[in-house]
Design a protein around this nucleic acid. Structure first.
Lengths: 210, 210
DNA sequence: TGAATAATGTGAATAATATCACATTATTAG
DNA sequence: CTAATAATGTGATATTATTCACATTATTCA
């Protein structure tokens, strides 16, 4: 898998196609054309075909794509046909809410560690059964439990230091909810989720038209 | 303001520059070059200059940019030098956590309405003083309180119907946390926040190298 | 079987975006 | 005051991403 250099935008769109295809599956649709899928995802049909073409041929000419096959093929492409273990660092409002949020589980992600520094929280059991550990134990526990991805939901001020510790513990993927740009070595891939930036985009659009 | 067609990516980057500049302000930096700012934001220096050039000349040749002036100029560009009122629809784990999360306030956004359908929640007072109303009252309250942006944190199944109601109530901007693609008329601008998609990108990178 | 239809896969064309490179303008120091 | 240095603003260039358009292949129906 993976021949040419794949645009990041393609990867993101593949996730979106997959989500939509999974919904279609639930509605018992078993074949779909790039045209119909494109409409549902809000993209151009050729875009879908090109995105998939980076990785092979998955459709049937004159017919379309078999939905359940394509879901699995996209999962293969993205590396989702295996479990991924997550560690949450920072169990404030947001962190706790995310752990309780069903969407991670639904897509095959599993929380296997949770950290905070608040003595009041250490040792507490979360609704999913996980016990909150002190950040001091981060490296050891992350290695022990084979965590793959760290999620940072600490205040901005702590994010960089947490990121450093995650990297030290051997983590190569970070999902960062703290509103700062964290610096990591090239071996580590960071994705940022900053909703106030999205709000800024909305504000811009509302202020100055499309 | 706004002469040529501005790339969406530019708008997003302007938010990021602004965040970084605000941090610099707190550290009493008062002038910065595009080169240093670029490094901190992880972009190319020429990119910053080009992004700003869409809107005017904000720097001083041979010197750089005055940090506090530039923050304000970017706020003007994005339409952030005014209050924006938000309505939260869906007060489950995520919605409640977001309302309590300080980041919206910090950037000038204000929650002025909150809606749910759970009878247990209706009438309850949130930590910020807001009282939760039934979604049936959405249109009336949104108009009354001059809400500008709706935030959807309902289950996926409810998101489209909530979006429809928001549009009916005159809302032109939606921040959607539900993991579905919602359909709205062109007058309404939607931004999606889907962290499982970001996780998928991380999974891909971890599986197949950069 | 063969013609009509449908929809993929893909090279070529187009459009959008990012980067380079340098002319221009401030500042500083001798 | 002049030369050296620093850093912006921007036309030109390079790169990347998207869309078009059509050849190809599967299916259906007469």
């Amino acid at each position: 898998m993976k021949f040419a250099k794949i645009p990041m935008a393609t990867i993101v769109r593949l996730s979106i196609y997959m989500r939509t295809l999974q919904e279609l599956l639930e509605d018992d649709v078993d074949v779909i054309s790039s045209e119909r899928l494109a409409k549902q995802c809000g993209v151009n049909p050729a875009q879908i075909r090109k995105d998939l073409a980076y990785f092979g041929e998955f459709g049937v000419r004159g017919v379309g794509y078999r939905v359940n096959e394509l879901v699995n093929q996209i999962k293969d492409i993205l590396g989702l046909n295996r479990p991924w273990n997550l560690a949450m660092v920072g169990l404030g409002n947001l962190g706790s809410a995310l752990i309780r949020h069903g969407n991670f589980i639904k897509h095959g992600y599993m929380f296997t560690a949770a950290f905070d520094i608040d003595p009041q929280k250490i040792g507490k059991r979360l609704p999913n059964g996980l016990i909150i550990n002190h950040v001091d134990e981060l490296e050891e526990i992350i290695k022990q439990r084979e965590v793959h991805v760290g999620i940072i939901t600490t205040p901005a001020s702590e994010a960089q230091s947490v990121a450093n510790q995650l990297v030290l513990a051997g983590i190569n993927g970070i999902l960062n909810f703290a509103p700062v740009q964290i610096q990591v070595p090239d071996c580590c891939h960071v994705e940022n989720v900053d909703f106030t930036i999205k709000l800024d985009s909305i504000a811009y659009h509302l202020s100055f038209g499309s």
